[in-house]
């Protein structure tokens, strides 16, 4: 923290900060995908490297938000796939 309240300014997520956060998030999530893990944190020590960068580049609130959203999106995709397969099955039967 500097004398002129520069800390606050550094906290302000500007475009390039957001970009950096999003990119490290994508890298971490790609690693999770590769290891077949949906819920962040369940991967053990496998994606440690990307996780550290991700948590460094994104605020904690953002990390929580992205992690929650990843799980929700996965659930949504599952439900959607289920519905679609049921629909196509029903079509086949009729």
């Amino acid at each position: 923290m500097g004398w002129f309240g520069s800390k606050k300014e550094d906290d302000q997520p500007l475009r390039h900060d957001r970009q950096k956060c999003w990119e490290s998030r994508d890298a971490y999530f790609a690693c999770l995908d590769a290891t077949g893990v949906v819920k962040p944190g369940d991967e053990g020590s496998k994606c440690k490297e990307t996780k550290v960068v991700y948590e460094q580049n994104c605020a904690k609130s953002w990390v929580d938000y992205f992690n929650k959203r990843r799980v929700l999106a996965e659930q949504q995709a599952n439900v959607l796939a289920q519905v679609n397969s049921q629909a196509s099955e029903a079509k086949r039967k009729s």
Binding site: P13, C21, A59, S61, W62
Partner: peptide
């Protein structure tokens, strides 16, 4: 809000 992760920007 300015601390908005992705939707706002």
């Amino acid at each position: 809000f300015t601390n908005c992760p992705d939707i706002c920007p």
